[in-house]
Design a protein around this nucleic acid. Sequence first.
DNA 1: TATTGTTATACTCTATAACTATA
DNA 2: TATAGTTATAGAGTATAACAATA
Lengths: 147, 147
Amino acid sequence: MSDDPLARFDFLTGSLGYSLRLTQVRMYNLFFEMIGDLGLTPARVTALSLIATGDDMNQAKLARSLDIAGPSALKIVDALEAAGLICRLDVQGDRRRYVLALTATGRAKLEQLRVRMAEYEDRIAAGLSPAEREQLIGLLNRTALPG
Amino acid sequence: MSDDPLARFDFLTGSLGYSLRLTQVRMYNLFFEMIGDLGLTPARVTALSLIATGDDMNQAKLARSLDIAGPSALKIVDALEAAGLICRLDVQGDRRRYVLALTATGRAKLEQLRVRMAEYEDRIAAGLSPAEREQLIGLLNRTALPG
DNA sequence: TATTGTTATACTCTATAACTATA
DNA sequence: TATAGTTATAGAGTATAACAATA
């Protein structure tokens, strides 16, 4: 690249990790620009989607799905419940547990989100062809794999 | 995909935003697994690299480069100084400012980091060919662009 | 007036540890 | 003993607002 001896300490140029981080920050900013008015964070949208589509979702399962600790999942559940989007339902035969379910407000919010998330996805992929978008997702899914 | 009417609320499958977020979390975990023993966070490595390679780096410039607020940059600078990796040098002719410079300890740490960061970059791209790695960086740099 | 750096403060997200109720 | 959920607490990271010193 350069004869500059300082270039040996440039960990950023051409770094996959740095590119990924910058892209994620841009994406995060665009999320709040485009969807912030709906009052949800990316993590809460993810949780809401999991509650809507998963069956028999509870807090422990949510924590495992999101790969976060129990108390962190609790905060998300509390926030979604306080916003009136979900409710805790008692479970017959196990009084420790409850099932997370959408409220009518939650379903309406998801209808809004369905449109806005699609616009958001189109926006972040605006510079890519449909083929490139699929290619990018495929490459990402093969990056930084554990094991 | 599916006839399941709930699939309309699955914002995660095939989502570029979600793939990007998951990949970044995996990457973050691998960073601490592989480099965590050096006692630096990704943000501090970035800052250290900028201080090492940028000329006449100061706190305001660092804040702009990292796209964070002044007090946030201050905390990073304080942490790097407390770790003995950088020092604040007075500037002739402007007593408001100082220049951030590496200490001998900081240079030694950067030599360690140079090797470890290379290993880390290889590790996160282990599932990709060199061509795919370049392709991924190129696609990321065209994703979620502002404007 | 504008800029550099600082302090004070607060909010969010995350985590661990200890607790309760129940199984 | 083990599990689901909760509470308390703490730490990291971020932000805004107000300030001092200097230009």
